[in-house]
């Protein structure tokens, strides 16, 4: 006699469930576009370093202070100065002026002597090389 029994943990159903679970976790892992503290930052990581980007239009290098403390705390501090011309009336004010400070805790220690920052067309780009201990190390496999 031939019959099939419903088995929720049969291979196919189980695989589908696992796939669904994987997709849900991926959705939560994905970076979300959201507003946090000023300035908003985008952070990329590659094998050797961390790349931090922030939009800071109207700022010059001398308006900015960038420092790394305790190997893994990056602080961006600065001030956006008001450019209002004298004896002017305001029609529209969407800009914001003033000082800001933001500290980011980095996911691994960085080499604070090799940090490199550039400000170009109002976009700040900071490159933070990983500390020797945090770098991925290739292990040679001997035959």
């Amino acid at each position: 006699m031939f019959w099939t029994r419903f088995n929720p943990f049969s291979n196919r159903v189980w695989n589908d469930l696992q796939q669904l679970q994987g997709e849900m976790f991926r959705w939560f892992d994905r970076p979300h576009w959201g507003v946090a503290a000023f300035p908003a930052v985008n952070v990329w990581e590659d094998g050797d370093s961390l790349h931090v980007e922030a939009e800071l239009p109207g700022l010059q290098l001398e308006d900015l202070e960038i420092f790394v403390t305790g190997n893994n705390q990056l602080t961006i501090k600065g001030e956006r100065k008001q450019q209002t011309p004298e004896k002017a009336s305001e029609h529209r004010l969407e800009w914001h002026y003033g000082s800001f400070v933001r500290t980011l805790t980095l996911p691994f220690p960085v080499d604070d002597r090799k940090v490199n920052a550039r400000l170009e067309n109002g976009v700040l780009r900071i490159e933070l090389p990983k500390h020797e201990a945090a770098r991925p190390r290739r292990i040679p496999v001997k035959a």
Binding site: P31, H32, W33, G34, V35, A36, A40, V41, N42, V43, W44, E45, D46, G47, S49, H51, E55, P107
Partner: peptide
């Protein structure tokens, strides 16, 4: 951009 995005706050 090098590597992968780990924190994205603006587009």
């Amino acid at each position: 951009h090098k590597g992968h995005l780990i924190l994205g706050e603006y587009e």
